[in-house]
């Protein structure tokens, strides 16, 4: 659903999957580039929107929503009624937040899951990795993306990004308090998406264990986002720090870069790439669970 930038990049990722088959691309603009590209790949297309999908619901199992939060909120109950599982890439927040390497099991039995934000997909794994081996009273992330890679939806609703991501740092990452900051950088050539994750560390952590947990998690994300990498070893600083989640003796900083696979967007737009790659991963997990259930 949605033949814009995200939908089109997602289509190319889904085409590469051996667990999913892309059977339709649904838009509302007959002249859209995304629909033309889908036709070129031999995929059935329509510009009649979600109503077309609902009429043909029996032909499909999963719908990936890459339209807007408003559209998704309106159609989510109808998808469910029609027996379609929804993977939501908009900020509609109908279903629970999912990050593939953290809580993919959440996705398996839910009618609807939400992919949070690009910054959330890039940073929540790190917070979760630290939280696996140490208490994290406070986590903070700074996500910097190239101005060119942020569409009008993101720009007009920048609060959605900060609030949704902050909540995911807590609910999925496991931090007691989360804070997210987003920066747009207009430099030319465009900068590759970068993220800095700060985790406050409560008493009793082991530096080596924390560092290893982070590095292992990065490798897991690399399985579906090859351009996801640490720019250096995790940096440990001694505090004490008075954070909004309480005082902490130390913090760890992970500096991350996300280079996209350039399926449809240029490589600098790692922020868009990580969303579509994560959504593909979630779709594959849902499909695997359905196949298992029916066999």
């Amino acid at each position: 659903m949605g033949s814009g930038n995200i939908g089109t990049d997602l289509m190319y990722k889904l085409l590469k999957s051996d667990k999913l088959s892309v059977d339709a691309m649904i838009g509302i603009d007959p002249a859209s580039d995304g629909l033309a590209r889908a036709r070129a790949e031999g995929i059935e297309t329509t510009h009649e929107g979600a109503d077309w999908l609902l009429e043909r619901a029996d032909d499909f199992d999963i719908v990936f929503e890459a339209t807007t939060a408003g559209v998704h909120r309106h159609y989510a109950p109808k998808y469910e009624q029609a027996g379609l599982r929804a993977v939501d890439l908009t900020p509609a927040k109908v279903g629970p937040n999912v990050v593939p390497v953290v809580n993919i099991e959440e996705a398996i039995n839910r009618p609807n899951v939400n992919m949070i934000t690009c910054g959330g997909q890039a940073t929540v794994p790190i917070v979760a990795a630290v939280n696996d081996v140490a208490a994290v009273p406070y986590a903070e992330i700074v996500s910097t993306v190239a101005s060119k890679s942020a569409g009008p939806g993101t720009r007009q609703n920048i609060d959605e990004f900060t609030k949704t991501t902050s909540r995911a740092l807590e609910e999925v990452g496991g931090a007691t308090v989360g804070k997210a900051i987003m920066i747009l950088n207009p430099a030319e050539p465009p900068i590759i998406m970068r993220n800095t994750v700060f985790c406050a560390l409560a008493e009793g952590f082991d530096e080596e264990v924390v560092a290893k947990s982070i590095i292992d998690k990065v490798e897991q994300v690399q399985e579906y986002v090859p351009g996801y990498r640490l720019k250096s070893d995790p940096v440990f600083d001694q505090g004490p720090y008075e954070t909004p989640g309480g005082s902490a003796p130390a913090r760890v900083i992970a500096l991350l870069e996300v280079e996209g696979a350039a399926d449809y967007f240029p490589p600098y737009a790692g922020n868009l790439d990580i969303m579509t790659a994560a959504a593909t991963k979630v779709g594959e997990a849902i499909a695997a669970a359905q196949t298992e259930a029916s066999s």
């Binding site: 700074v142 910097t144 920066i183 747009l184 950088n185 430099a187 970068r194 800095t196 900083i253 500096l255």
Partner: peptide, 12 residues
């Protein structure tokens, strides 16, 4: 070409 707010780039 760091812009305002990119203090994290200093550590980088």
């Amino acid at each position: 070409g760091a812009v305002g707010g990119q203090e994290d780039m200093i550590i980088d």
